[in-house]
C-alpha cells in the first residue's frame, strides 16, 4: 500500500499534465490558426466561418443606401447556387467598421483599395464602398461601379489572389437590378448568370 500510493500519484500527475497540455495545445491552435487560401471555399480564407459583408458608405443618406444594399443582399441570397456554397442559410447583415483606401487618381479594375497583400486577412469576404456626388465623379469617372481587390494573399509561388472583394459603387446605382446582378452577386462570389444545365454537357474538342 505504501509503495502503490506514490506510483498512483505519479500516474495521476502525468495524466493531469497530459490533459492540461492537450487543452492548451488545442486552444493555442485555435487562436494561432494560420489563415490560408482555401482553393475550394466560397469564403476563400480558411479561418473564416461565415459570410460577412462590410459597408463603407460615404453619403449623407446612409439609411436609404443601407436599405437598398440590404434588399440587394436578400436578392443575392435567393441565388440558385447559394445552397452549394459554404455560406449559412442567413442573409448576411451589413456591418460597419471597414474603411477603403481610395487612390486620388481614381478607382479602376485592378486597383487595390484596401490593405493589399497580407498574411492576416480580415473577417469580411466582401466590402461595399458607396460614393456620392462629386467624390463619385472624381474617383469613378464614367463608371457606375467597379469590382476591385481589397485584400490579397499569396496562393502559391508567384501568384496572389483577392481574398476580400470590394465593389465601389455610386449611390444612385445601388438600388438598380443591374448592380445586384452584375456587381453585388459576383462580389459575394456567385455567378451573375447561373447555368441550369450541368457542366458535363460541355465538351468541345477537335482534331486537325
Amino acid at each position: 500500500m505504501s509503495t502503490r500510493l506514490p506510483r498512483l500519484a505519479a500516474y495521476g500527475a502525468l495524466a493531469a499534465l497530459l490533459a492540461i497540455f492537450v487543452g492548451l495545445f488545442v486552444e493555442s491552435r485555435r487562436s494561432e490558426a494560420v489563415p490560408r487560401v482555401d482553393p475550394e471555399s466560397d469564403l476563400i480564407v480558411s479561418t473564416r466561418d461565415r459570410l460577412r459583408v462590410c459597408a463603407d458608405i460615404r453619403v449623407a443618406d446612409q439609411r436609404q443606401v443601407t436599405d437598398r444594399l440590404t434588399a440587394g443582399l436578400r436578392q443575392v441570397r435567393r441565388h440558385p447556387h447559394w445552397e452549394l456554397t459554404d455560406f449559412d442559410d442567413r442573409t448576411p447583415a451589413l456591418e460597419g467598421g471597414c474603411r477603403a483606401t481610395l487612390p486620388q487618381e481614381g478607382v479602376a479594375k485592378g486597383v487595390v483599395v484596401g490593405p493589399g497583400v497580407t498574411a492576416r486577412p480580415g473577417p469580411y469576404r466582401t466590402v461595399v464602398v458607396v460614393l456620392g456626388g462629386a467624390e463619385a465623379d472624381r474617383l469613378l469617372g464614367g463608371q457606375r461601379a467597379v469590382l476591385v481587390p481589397y485584400e490579397l494573399m499569396e496562393i502559391e509561388h508567384g501568384a496572389t489572389a483577392t481574398v476580400t472583394q470590394a465593389v465601389v459603387v455610386r449611390d444612385t446605382f445601388v438600388g438598380s437590378p443591374e448592380f445586384v446582378k452584375d456587381y453585388l452577386t459576383p462580389a459575394i462570389g456567385l455567378h451573375p448568370e447561373p447555368d441550369p444545365n450541368h457542366k458535363e454537357d460541355h465538351h468541345h474538342e477537335t482534331s486537325s
Binding site: 469590382l147 476591385v148 501568384a159 483577392t162 462580389a187 447555368d195 457542366k199
Partner: peptide, 14 residues
C-alpha cells in the same frame, strides 16, 4: 513577374 487573380466566383455550373 507574377500573377494575381481577382473576383472569385462559383462557376455557372455551380
Amino acid at each position: 513577374s507574377c500573377v494575381t487573380f481577382d473576383v472569385q466566383t462559383r462557376a455557372a455550373s455551380g
